[in-house]
Structure formats: C-alpha cells, structure tokens
Design a protein around this nucleic acid. Structure first.
Length: 607
RNA sequence: GGGGGUGUAGCUCAAUUGGUUAGAGCGCUGCCCUGUCACGGCAGAGGUUACGGGUUCGAGCCCCGCCACUCCCGCCA
C-alpha cells in the first residue's frame, strides 16, 4: 500500500476518494467502540476513524493496540466530518478518513518524552532531546526549522547562480595557520608528527580562487573552530562564503542586500526594504556601545563629557582629565530596578574594569543616588535635557576610556532592555528586522599585554585607500575596508576588500603584526607566491548560515536549526562522541596519550 | 581558565525551619466507553532524590567533592 497523499493534503474536494496515508501515529483517542487515530507525516496530520463496521474484529483489536509513533499505512475513504466536529486547528480539519484496510509497518516503544503536545515538548530538557534527536526532529516545530534551512540553502544557491557565481568546494583537510581561532587538528598517518587542520573558514582558498580567475565564488562551507561554545556558536558550523574580483564595497552591499531580500521572501514571504542603513564603527559604539547594535529600541548612549569636564565630582572630571569620557544611559521606566538587578549591572561594569556603576533613580520626583549631591545645578540641567529625564527613569553612568565606557553601557543597555521586556514595558514586534551595515572598523587593535598590533578582522583586510599613508606612522588611525552585516543585534556576517598587492600584505604581516619573515613564509608563503602572479583586486564576505536560519525561525539557539548539534562541551549525546580510540589507531598515528584516561562515568543507560 | 543556574518517577514539576510511608499532572498498564481531537471514567504500577563522602537522633533540603546539562565572561584573526 503506497501512500497516495501526504497528511496535510486532503480537503473537502477529495471527499469520496479512496486514499492511502503513511506515517506515524500522532495521537489516539480510543472511545471503545470507535477509535480515532491522527496520522502524522512530515507535512502535517489527518484524522482517521476506525469503525468496527468497516473492519474485521481482528483488525479492530490491532488498531486498538497502536500507540504513539507506531508506523502505519492506512487506507480508506475521505469523508466529511459530522456536523459540529470539524477541527479548525488543523488544515485537514474538515475531513476525515474512514479506514477500511491498514498495515502496521513498525511498532514503537513507549517514548522517552512526549512529542505530540508542542507546549510540553518545548519544555523537555535539551539533553534529553539531543539524546533522542530523531524523536525531537519529528516535532513539527523542529521539522519546520529543517525545512526553512533547506529552502534557504536552495534559494541562496539559485540566487548566487543567477548572479553568476560558481560554487566551488574547498578542502576541509587544510594546513594549520595558527592565527585566530584554535583549530581542530587531524594527525597524518603517513608522516609522524605532521597534522592537517580543519579550516576555520575557506578564507585563503577563496582568495586563491580569485587569483585562479574564478571571479565570483560562493560556497555553503563547513567551518570548524575549537573554541568554547555558546548558544550561537558550535564547533562546526556553516557559512555562506562569498568572494568576488574587480569590485568595491558597494558591490558587496548590493549583492548581500539582494540575497537577504530573496531569503526573507523565501522563508517568511516578507519584503525587506533595501538598501540597508549604514553606521560607522565609531558611531555604533557612541550611540549603542557595541559594534552590532540592536536598533529596534532606542535607549541610546549620551555623551556627557563636556558637561562634566570641570565638575567637582572627581570620579568624572578626573577620568576626563586622563583622556577618558563620561557616557550616560537613560533606562526609561527602570527606576524600580531591584538591588539584584543593579548588582548584576555593576558586575558587568566591573568585568570591564570599571570600579563601579553610578546611577540615579528618578522616583517620586526625586533623584535618588549616592553621587547626585556632587552635581552642580548646571550639570543636573544638562542631564535632564540631554537624557530627557522623567519620573520613573533610571540613569546609568560610565566614566572610562572611550571604548571601555561605551562597551560597559552597551552591555548595560542590552541588560536593561531584557529586564524591560520581561516587565512588559518594552515590546518588540517579532516580525521586525533591522538590518544594518557596520563599516569603517579600525584595521588594527593594540594588544597591551603582548605589546603588539593585531588585525581586528583578519590580516588580509585592505586599508581604506586614504589611510594607507598612516600604516607605518599612525596605525591606530587606519580604517579597514571591512564591513559587518547586523540584524537585530546579531552579527550575521562580515567581510572585507582584501589586500591584493604582495608588498602591502608583507608590510602588514611583518611590520605591523610583527610576524617574523620566516614564519610568514611558512604559514602564508603559498599565498604571497600566488599574489605575485597577477592577483585581481577582490573582496568578499561570509554569512553565518546557522545564525541566519535561527533568526528566520525566531529561535535564540542555533542548536534548534542544526539537525545534530553538539552540547556546550562539544559532545554529541546521541552518538557519545568524542570517544576514546584503540591503541592500534593511536600507534598508526604515532600518538601517545599522556593524560590518564578519565575513569569512565556511569555509562548512559543503553536503550 | 573563571562566574552563575539546574539536576527529585519515562517527561514536566512540587515537597514549610532539617522531621511520619517523597507528592501532582502528563505518559504507561488493566477495565469501561460509537464522535473524539489535551476524549472521558474507574483502578494500578512506577523513586538508590545525578554520583561519592560528611554533619546530625534524623538529610531531597546543610557542608565538601565530583559528574552532566545550560547561560555568561575570557576566547571566537
């Protein structure tokens, strides 16, 4: 009995037809003399009815033994439901199938957790869901996520194809290039002590492809980073990797805007307006305290430096005298913040090296604050005006070096927004998507501990042409041709126009990043070689595909949009990896394990 | 590497100040039920309170250790 329809297909128009549905028993309502079974497949579900007058007694008994998630093939006639028994919650709710024959393809044991009730299933502990991922993925919510992911991948490929891009696969057994993220290493059996590394990104290959004349490359590339995980970070992940020749930044902006337009249309049937707004790194920090601002709500940072330059409050004026700034933030309506919430904010501030967090609670027409007694009338007036202070507000201050002060308040701003959201005082439309290009990042940052410059993006990023002159004299001033695409406070991706002249690249490596020439040769020699033979000017971008899908699916965790994700410690609960290997495997790889194997914990109950 | 949170029945949770035999809903098992869709009714089974120590007359609860999961900082060119 092959299926004739899927479980979300039958409508009143099919009434009278004999059909066969295949799928899983979603739920069963056994009324004794009549059994209802909702059969579910990937597409949806349909109510079927087992009536003793249509079946042999043996068949009816067998039907009564079916439980959740048994696999069945059901044949019967589509009919109207009796008056008053339509189910408006499901698309097939106007009809039902009166079963005349069926086949049990497989029985199912009692489930470790229920998957038929969306609310209950959503509350199940994530480790249980991960251990039984094949059950978790049957839930319609998870199936939908996989579907969105597939649709978006295909839309991306067809869009990129239309734009003249070639999809090229690059190796996942690559060379260790220990700049940036820690790499996963793969030992080489053929030569003791040598290793491949899994790529953190196809960065170098895609630039070489430009030298190879591919001109327009893209790939849905798997990338690997051996760093600690977060809700939005997995050790292996997928990025939409793009590189083009003979272009400038505007070409990338236009391309990505077109791609995202297509993606939002495909996934959500939404028309997103383009072009996207642009904001400089400096402005983003000044206004939002972060380089990936969430602009769906205001609560912007305000600079109070000039108002407090001559203040008698030494904490502020002293910081300013040392070249620092005073920034303030009005958390509207948060005057009622609890002690705990204020402490959390203070901890944030302290984790950035601040001594504390100054605040003013505006309650009952009064400014409650340990510091306000030090403020002059003029200073108070400036605060009132610039911060639009009203009853019920909470004002927070950071006095520090510019970047620090901004970042502290940036964190606090997000924290306050979360608190206001849970209090219902801040409501954000889930259908709102604020796209933003963040541009004009500094090319280099300075590492005080190691006393050297580092690339704020990566060492292949081209400086803004006007700033090349400052490379050797005033590196801090050099802006990079780097851009990030941000939506709703999430960094969706980033890229840059690359350096294509070997001499500029050499200057960056050797003079600024202070990598010794022989090491540069060892690590990037092949790339510098390639650039000698006619490298076109080029640039590109990479979008975090998992994050993109998470945003489209409205989930916080990328684990919800990855079929088989790892836990926060990088393990797979379903397959129990990583695992120990046999001594022979280790011998073949010339590897000796020094650390004592951990005494295996009680193994998870095998089911 | 650091900080926070969680761990009690298959699942989700409760258990007063440390005090009787650790409870509930769902699920599961049995019986009844021909219009349910969170079906309903009756009865029942199901627990090494993650694990190992300790304090105490007495520990799910307090202390120490440890494991797992999770969130954040560091890290993620």
């Amino acid at each position: 009995m092959k299926r004739t329809h899927h479980c979300n297909e039958l409508r009143p128009a099919h009434i009278g037809q004999t059909v066969t549905l295949s799928g899983w028993v979603h739920s069963r309502r056994d009324l004794g003399g009549l059994i209802f079974i909702d059969i579910r497949d990937r597409e949806g579900r349909t109510q079927t009815v087992f009536d003793p007058s249509d079946l042999t007694p043996e068949q009816f008994t067998q039907a009564a033994s079916l439980r959740s998630e048994c696999v069945v093939s059901l044949t019967g006639k589509v009919r109207h439901r009796p008056d008053g028994t339509n189910n408006s919650k499901i698309p097939t709710g106007e009809i039902e199938v009166g079963i005349t024959a069926f086949e049990v393809l497989n029985m199912a044991e009692v489930l470790p957790f229920q998957i038929d009730d969306p609310e209950a299933a959503a509350k199940v502990a994530e480790d249980t869901r991960l251990q039984y991922r094949y059950l978790d993925l049957r839930r319609p919510e998870m199936a939908r996520n996989l579907k969105v992911r597939s649709k978006v991948a295909i839309a991306t490929r067809s869009f990129m194809d239309e734009q003249g891009f070639l999809e090229v696969e690059t190796p996942t057994l690559f060379k260790s290039t220990p700049e940036g993220a820690r790499e996963f290493l793969v030992p080489n059996r053929r030569e003791a002590g040598t290793f491949y590394a899994l790529p953190q990104s196809p960065q170098q290959f895609k630039q070489i492809l430009m030298v190879a004349g591919v001109e327009k490359y893209f790939q849905l590339a798997r990338c690997y980073r051996d760093e600690d995980l977060r809700a939005d970070r997995q050790p292996e992940f997928t990025q939409v990797d793009i590189e083009m020749s003979f272009i400038d930044r505007e070409d990338i902006y236009a391309l990505i805007e077109g791609l995202l337009k297509r993606v939002w249309k495909t996934a959500l049937n939404m028309d997103i307006p383009t072009p996207f707004k642009r904001i400089s790194f400096e402005e983003a920090l000044n206004r939002f305290g972060i380089d990936k601002p969430d602009t769906r709500f205001a609560m912007e940072l305000v600079d109070m430096t000039e108002d407090f330059r001559a203040s008698t409050f030494k904490v502020f004026s002293g910081t300013i005298a040392n070249g620092g700034v005073v920034k303030a933030l009005n958390a509207k309506g948060l005057a009622g913040a609890t002690q705990g919430q204020l402490e959390t904010m203070t901890e944030y501030a302290k984790s950035f090296g601040a001594k504390g967090l100054a605040f003013i609670k505006v309650e009952n027409g009064e400014w409650k604050s340990p510091i306000v007694k030090f403020f002059s009338e003029a200073e108070k007036a400036a605060l009132t005006t610039k911060l639009a202070i009203q009853e019920g507000d909470l004002i927070l201050f950071a006095a520090d070096q510019w970047l620090n002060a901004c970042e502290i308040l940036g964190k606090i701003r997000l924290y306050c927004a979360d608190v206001l959201k849970t209090q219902g005082k801040l409501v954000i439309d889930p259908k709102q998507f604020n796209f933003l290009w963040v541009i004009e990042f500094p090319l280099l940052g300075f590492d005080r501990e190691q006393n050297r410059w580092y690339s704020s993006h990566h060492p292949f990023t081209a400086p803004v042409a006007d700033d090349i002159q400052f490379l050797k004299t005033d590196p801090k001033r050099v802006r990079g041709q780097h851009y990030d695409i941000v939506v709703n406070g999430v960094e969706l991706g980033g890229g840059s126009i690359r350096i294509h002249q070997p001499n500029v690249q050499k200057t960056i490596f050797e003079e600024l990043l202070a990598i010794p020439p022989e090491e540069t040769r060892l690590r990037f020699g092949y790339m510098l070689d390639a650039f000698k033979y006619g490298a076109p000017p080029h640039g590109g971008i990479a979008l975090g595909f998992d994050r993109l899908i998470a945003i489209l699916c409205g989930t916080q965790s990328i684990r919800d949009v990855i079929a088989f994700p790892k836990t926060a410690k990088g393990t797979c609960l379903m397959t129990d990896s990583p695992s120990q290997v046999s001594p022979k495997q280790l011998r073949d790889l010339y590897i000796e394990v020094k650390a004592k194997p951990v005494t295996p914990p009680a193994p998870a109950p095998a089911k």
